[in-house]
Structures are given as C-alpha cells and as structure tokens.
Design a protein around this nucleic acid. Sequence first.
RNA 1: GUCCCCUUCGUCUAGCCCGGCCCAGGACACCAGGUUUUCAUCCUGGCGACAGGGGUUCGAAUCCCCUAGGGGACGCCA
Length: 467
Amino acid sequence: MSEVRVRFAPSPTGFFHIGSARTALFNWLYARHTGGKFVLRIEDTDRERNTEEALAVIFNGMRWLGLNWDEGPEVGGRHGPYFQSERSSVYLDYLEKLRGAGRVYEKDGAVYFRLEGERHTAYDAYKKCEVEKVRATPQVIEDRIRGRVERAEEQDFVLFRKNGQPVFHFVNVVDDLTMGITHVIRGEDHLSNTSKHCELFKAFGVNPPVYAHIPLILKENGPGKMSKRDQGSLIEEYQRRRFVPEAVRNYLCLLGWSPKDDREKLDINEIIQLFDLPAIKSNNARFDEKKLSFLNAAYLREMPVERFTEEAWSFLVGEGALKHEGVEIEGWGSRERRYFNQVMKLCQEKVRSIEDLPRFVAYFFTEDFRIDEKASKKVLNKGDPKARLTEIREVLKGLSALTEDILEEKVRALSEQTGAATGEYIHPTRLAVSGTNVGPSFYGLLTVLGKACVLKRLDAFLARMWG
RNA sequence: GUCCCCUUCGUCUAGCCCGGCCCAGGACACCAGGUUUUCAUCCUGGCGACAGGGGUUCGAAUCCCCUAGGGGACGCCA
C-alpha cells in the first residue's frame, strides 16, 4: 500500500474562505489520520492578484488553524516547485504528450482537448448558440463519499489559452499526477469537473486518483453557498475577532463530519484518530455562527488562565481600552500589570468571547463607565437601595482590606443584622461600582477593584442618585 | 435549458450500507423552572424532524420508483 498523498491547492485571491479552510482541514486530517503527506500547492496561474500579501493570508490562516504542510512553499519537498507559476515547463511537456497522442488541436489561437466519440452539432440553450457536441463514454468516478458517480463530458475543452497560459483543469491534473497525489479531497462544486479530469488522466495513460467530494457550506441566511461577502465567511475575520483557533477548527470539523457518538467538543488528536472519508456526510451544511460562538466560549473558559490573559492583553492593547487609575498603558508597571491579570482571572469564566472584553471589563479601567439604565431600573426599584448602600458602605469602610472570604462573611452578618436579604446589598452595590447587573463574581469584583475604589464609587453613586 | 449531487427537529447531526432495539437519540438556538451574589456559567424540563406519493415486506427513517424542493456545474476563472 503506497503512502497517501493529499493536497490543498488554493489560489491566492487575498481571502481565505471558510470553505477552502475546511477543504484544507479535511485534507490535513486525512493525511494525519493515514500517516500520509499533506502538500500545499499554490494555483497562481493567470492571476494578477497573486501577491505576497495574498499568499500571507493563506499561510497565516493555515498556521493559525494549525494546518501544517509537509511539502510546499516555505518547507520545500521533492515534488516542487509548488507554485504553478513556476511549473510552465512541466505543463509544456505534458501538452506534448497529449499532442503526441493526437488528443489536442488548435482553434482560435487556443489549444483544445479532443474528446473521443461521435460528433454532432446541437443548440445549447445555456450558451444560446449552436455547438459541437461529442458522445463520449461516461467517466465513472468511485467517489469515497458519494459512491459511484457517472458523468459524460460532451464538449472539447480548452487546455491552453490564446495567451499561452494553461487553464485550471489542465494544470490541476498535471500537478496532481506529477506530485503523486493519491486522494483528491475537494468541494462538491468540483464534482462536475471531475469528468474532465478523468478524461485527462486517462489521456495521459494513468488512473485518476481517488476522489472524495465534500459537501459545501451554505450561507447562514438566504440561498446558495457561502461567498466571500457573507458575514463570517473569511478566516481572517475570526483571526481579527480573536476567536480561539481550536474552536473554529473544531466547529469546521463538525460541518459534514461527526464522531458518531454524541461528543462535539473534541481534541484534535482524537479527531485525527476518528476521521475517515466515508464518515463524511454527502449533504451540504448550513453555517451557524451561534454554534461556533458556543464552542468558542467553551474553549475560552477551559483555556489556561495565562493564555487567556495574554490573548486579552494583546487584544485590549490593540483596542486602546486600557487605563488604570488614570495611568495610560504606556506608563504601566508591574502593579498595573498585576491588576490586569487579576481582572482577567476574574472574568475568564464569564466572558463569551475576547471581542466582548472591552465592553465587559471597561469599568475596571475607568471611572467614567456608564450606568446601564435597564439594570438601574431593575435593581433600584426593589426595597430601599439607598439605605442598603449606606449600610454596606459603613461596613466596607471599617475593613482594613478586602478579601473574598471576609467580604462574604461581613455581608452575611450585615444581612442578618438588618433583616435585609444579601441580594439587597449585592445588586445595588454591583450596580454602583460597575454600572451593570451582569459581571463576574461579586466578592471577587470588589476585591479586585479594591477598597478605595469601591468606596469612591459608592459615594459617587449615592451622590448621583440621591444627593 | 442540460448534466451531476443532496433531502432526519429552525440549525449541526446520530440512526440508513447489514429493514424490527426509533411513536427517532445528542448538540446549538429558543422557552420554562432550579442552583449560585448578578449573569452570558452550571443543572432539570419543554418545544421540535424521518420532504410528499407510490411500491417491496409480517414489518421501512432505513430497500426500489416517481414527484417536489435544495445545491452545484455548464468560462480562453480557479
């Protein structure tokens, strides 16, 4: 049994589409599952958008998702070059092979592939003109996901353009052939192209590789497959929004594949072990950002606190959201950094995404936070918040420093003493020091803010509401 | 228009190949309760699907046929 060799062959368009990413992922998974090789090849023929930046988008995206390639740009390999733009001589050689076999001809300056079979002319309702059609033998594709698929090509097709450049179908087949690709795992949108590719492989006198056409990702709202313009369709977007790459990858695995039991959040090594071609579904899957977000939140919560803090730091610095006790980020020393770490440790279990963080933690870094009106109404319309706040203020004032244990003990004692429920203290106090009714653990919140800050905010709040 | 693929809760899916254990299981979302100091955590419960019609069979989500719907391809784009 020869080694499995799969490839991902993106065209550098400047975007890394989520569908492409999943194709790359499935190829990578299959290579890792079988112990084979994962090849990255850049399909940059006839492309003006083929720039360093466009390439970087793909490389960054793949590395972000953890999809390392065994052969290709930047890592090399024995089947190079891995840029189609550098393989012209190979294409010319293979064109000669077809020419020698009498399978090509020129028309209008372009080179065509000649199908074998009886010819006739027919009106083409799609092209709205008379065309020459060929009754060629149907190509049989033993697709590993769909089973047996038969399709006959019915028109000769272009191999080289008038300008001398080879077209996709030709280079794709020649590259797969010369790079020893054994399995072609690609989107279902290529299924109809496969008959062309089979014709070419056979014209070269070799068997086509094993095909596996994976289902497409449909847009969340509205008809059709996901396109570049759809919200959430680009990997760059998830990178920018600081999604957890493991979560995005996990979610993508679940679109068209499942471990068959009821698990969904799976370690990638386990997925590698379980992954196989026939286990992939054949029907299209609709993108669901809610589920992605759910997984992202789950990954975020279980992340080591150090990594969470680091992610949060780089994002919040980028957003310009940081200041502590009036100290701008540039002036931060270890004291501020320690404060930041405490805030993040406190918030990690509550926040759903890194991008929510600026809003979620704003009041930790400014006195100028806004008081949420809804929360205010909800909290202040119960009992006698002014009295409760005044009472708790006295208790806090008497403490030398705040710790969670002492706070809890003191608030309970106060509650027992006055007969007011602990909630009657907690809710207004949270509102006073954070402006909202949602957030991290209450006692943790006060502890991290510190006594001075809490008292100051309580006074400001009392003055503002009842002063 | 032609050709190809697909069709289980709103969504992702298990079950389908090898018919009975399925008046169809899980997850997200939604709704209702509960826990916790709030909540976007957690727990419990609810809502909710075999596209339709014909066969085959003692028996069909599972096999066959038709219809409908969805998706894709039909480029000197990839």
